[in-house]
Design a binder for these strands. Structure first.
Lengths: 336, 336
DNA sequence: CTGAAAGCGCTTACAG
DNA sequence: CTGAAAGCGCTTACAG
């Protein structure tokens, strides 16, 4: 029904091999035949069947995206859709399509990965988060399927990954606060099983240490999810101990919850608050919520780049991870 | 390298035809052979190659998603990611994978559709928005490729689509406001070339008419994009004429901009404000911003359902569109 | 530079 | 109920 390579071959009076070579443009073909083939292609309106190509080439030219199941901020945070955009735009340019899947828990994630990899529906996988003891990473390493992780994995050896420099980003935030005479700087985190959380906490501690401020565990609190409710509760816990003069949170939703808790007791005008991700809500509830923009779109682009690079060059890849710049969005002019 | 149907056939001592039949489970096979085949499958760890199946079946089992290029709220509004979730979860259950693409303008959208359809990479297309004079719809109708539109298209004949009842949703909002003694109800809209906008405006007018309130065009303003800035400017325009006692906006971002403009002049405590989409920011800036939740996830699910139904049953489909319920989120208790 | 042939890994009409 | 064979639409090693 649809026009195939045979029709083109017949019309151009060549073999299908020749047509194929003209299409893939990787063999010497006389300019004469080439012209004839192109003309036939044009008059017939021929377009190669991608599926047949995939089968013959043993490569789908598709990357598979696993959306994490447990992300409270999946729908409140432009992070993921920006990631997806960065991935898609780059992949498209390189001739890859993107498949994605939502899953409701880790087991379903594995199931989807299996579906993708068993059936060879995708050439490689992009994981959008890495957890401690990440089962998906473990599985993908086991079956030795190409994949890349957004977020530095626990054991980054021989794994492709992209991430921000979370340690330094938080280090800089806290250093800035200290520079502005803040002494009682609270830290609110979540998902302690993510490297991101650990790195940010480490950066926080290091900045204190560098300025001779003793680390006070009671000024820190960590919960399990990136939600406003969680931030609210964690802040309340800290407030039972004392009032901080600045609050850093590893996510804007946490920061917004913290602000809510603070406001119930204090005027927050003298408390600096800094979150991460620069979500749209950060501008609203409390106009002075500064935030670290993690450049999600670039993270996505870089993830796609690393993975495609690997698919094209196999094991002679030069670089196996990329660190993406963050950008401090200062809504308080607190660094003067 | 990978284990194929041949290996299974050999081990089970049957033909590949038989293995294939066992897998697809649509022919009578003696339970004896079936058992032998399953055992071979298990011991070999066999998984059918999806690409080969696709080629033989002439169907990719993939749906293609075209993300609209001109959406200001693509990244500020959970609408799209919720749509994508609804689509993915349903499609997965039915054995379809999802491909998506971002594009930077309408021409690129067409290019992507061409890429998807020419190469048979997808069995059907899901458009996430419909515009007046929509080129994508026009093109897909021309080439007669299966597709479904989220948002009622201009000429819905012979097109699959899902949408909310925008007319009634706005009708109900305005009726509620009138019931609460509001008389000067402003209307702020954007993207007048979308049916959604027209329907909401029509619902607004009808509610006024039903209650004997004359339609005053100077209380309405329409711009071109769903952005806060746009809402701000449109509200200012209306305010030059008079102060309304209620404002309806076709999008929460517009509503937030309107609130900003209002606040510059008035205390807004006596002005009811209602937007659409129930974005997370709606809760923040102005805690009394009520909003109509359009149930994006269900929209996505239904879109996938219609399209897959069409792919499976061809032209004997029973229903070619679905209307998804909206839900009024009343943050002001204005309907008592 | 070009073609005939085999192959990618499945499915299915046909025959038995 | 089962198998041999042709076919889905490409690619590519081999031979010339």
């Amino acid at each position: 029904m649809a026009v195939t390579i045979k029709d083109v071959a017949k019309l151009a009076n060549v073999s299908t091999s020749t047509v194929s070579r003209v299409i893939s443009n990787n063999s010497k073909i006389s300019s004469d035949t080439k012209a004839r083939v192109f003309e036939a292609i044009k008059t017939l309106g021929y377009h190669p069947n991608e599926i047949a190509r995939s089968l013959a080439n043993n490569s789908a030219n598709v990357l598979g995206l696993i959306l994490p199941n447990n992300e409270n901020d999946l729908f409140n945070n432009p992070f993921f859709i920006l990631l997806m955009k960065g991935i898609s735009v780059y992949a498209q340019k390189k001739g890859y399509n993107i498949m994605y899947s939502f899953s409701k828990d880790e087991n379903e994630e594995i199931d989807i990965i299996k579906k993708y990899t068993y059936g060879k529906a995708v050439d490689g996988i992009i994981l959008l988060r890495s957890n401690q003891n990440d089962k998906c990473i473990k599985y993908l390493k086991e079956i030795d399927y190409p994949f890349v992780v957004v977020g530095r994995p626990e054991n980054p050896e021989n794994i492709l990954w992209v991430d921000n420099d979370n340690y330094n980003a938080m280090f800089n935030v806290v250093s800035g606060l200290i520079y502005n005479e803040k002494k009682q700087i609270a830290f609110i985190g979540a998902s302690t099983d993510m490297n991101m959380s650990k790195d940010r906490l480490a950066g926080y501690k290091k900045a204190l240490e560098n300025h001779g401020i003793p680390f006070d565990e009671r000024l820190t609190a960590e919960g399990n999810e990136f939600s406003e409710q969680n931030g609210y509760e964690l802040m309340q816990k800290i407030l039972k101990y004392k009032k901080p003069d600045a609050v850093t949170a590893t996510d804007d939703l946490l920061a917004l919850g913290a602000i809510k808790a603070l406001k119930e007791i204090y005027s927050v005008n003298d408390i600096s608050i800094v979150g991460f991700n620069n979500i749209p809500q950060a501008e609203y509830k409390y106009s002075r919520l500064s935030s670290v923009d993690i450049n999600s779109e670039e993270l996505g682009k870089s993830a796609a780049k690393l993975l495609i690079n690997k698919l094209l060059r196999g094991n002679e890849i030069l670089v196996n991870h990329l660190i993406i710049e963050t950008r401090f969005v200062d809504r308080e002019n607190f660094i003067t």
